[in-house]
Design a protein around this nucleic acid. Sequence first.
DNA 1: CTCTACCTTGACGTAAAGGGAAGCTTGTGC
DNA 2: GCACAAGCTTCCCTTTACGTCAAGGTAGAG
Lengths: 160, 160
Amino acid sequence: MSESDEPAAEAQIGAVIADKLEDDDGLHPRGSLFSIGDLAREFDVTLRTLRFYEDKGLINPRREGLNRLYSRRDRARLKLVLMGKRVGFSLTEIKGMLDLYDLRDGQVAQLKVALDRFNDRIAILEKQKKEIEQALMELRRTTSVVSGLLKEKEAGARRS
Amino acid sequence: MSESDEPAAEAQIGAVIADKLEDDDGLHPRGSLFSIGDLAREFDVTLRTLRFYEDKGLINPRREGLNRLYSRRDRARLKLVLMGKRVGFSLTEIKGMLDLYDLRDGQVAQLKVALDRFNDRIAILEKQKKEIEQALMELRRTTSVVSGLLKEKEAGARRS
DNA sequence: CTCTACCTTGACGTAAAGGGAAGCTTGTGC
DNA sequence: GCACAAGCTTCCCTTTACGTCAAGGTAGAG
């Protein structure tokens, strides 16, 4: 239950939002910069994945020659992406929300939109949960029927 | 709560297994035969789907010239396929189980295998259910954080 | 100079379950 | 004699989230 190990293995959502709000774009001289490998290790994703996300417009690291250089902001975006994935958003949906953030005109409106999406997702997840519960019931019924049949069959076999 | 309407719209699993055990292969003269359209209507699937299933080896209707002719057995298989889908098996997995049935040597062994698969599925579904519950928790936490932020922002805006 | 590790782009593959459309038959009824 | 309904086959398209080569660049270690 310590809290200093595994810095962001599970990316607390609170921290994500917090990071998002830290918002140290490129304002200060040179914050912490990361290589693609750094982020891959930290968040346990493959390099391919990071490049893929970039290709999809989810992250936009600068270049140092050919190599990608990720800022803290890129890192925060990645965190958001991964948390989005965990709760079931598609990359496209996530991009939509990230793009909204980037517009950051009033911010408030954007947050409201995000909030709505979250609530939609919650509804969807609850529905899926019910479907799974349905499936579970059907399966349990089935297994009990089948095991009943099995017992009959075996009993029959013993009698013959 | 009546039980005579919607014959198989939801295919009771008990009935499925029962059908499977009726086992009227081609033994008796001429049972009931169905056209592709018949089954499509009865189970609310498209013709495309039925042909697709055939393509995947899940059903093997005979031909009357070019046209497909489905036997009661084909129909029972279809029922199993659809129920398998409902509980989350892939078509490939379903085919595997159906093929086992067709080996019908001892039958008992096959039923045991099916039973195992069912239990595996149950485990998977339970896991998914937990994941969904996790996601729900994360989302709920997030929404509360975000709506908290929103309130702050709005309050701040009013003060400025 | 050569290894090795790490990085790059780009194209193609994969799984799942069909959807959709083109274009040909066949049967039925008027 | 023709339209219309149903079927048939074949082939390509879709979505999601990457994995997997291919083919080569670059930098530091020894």
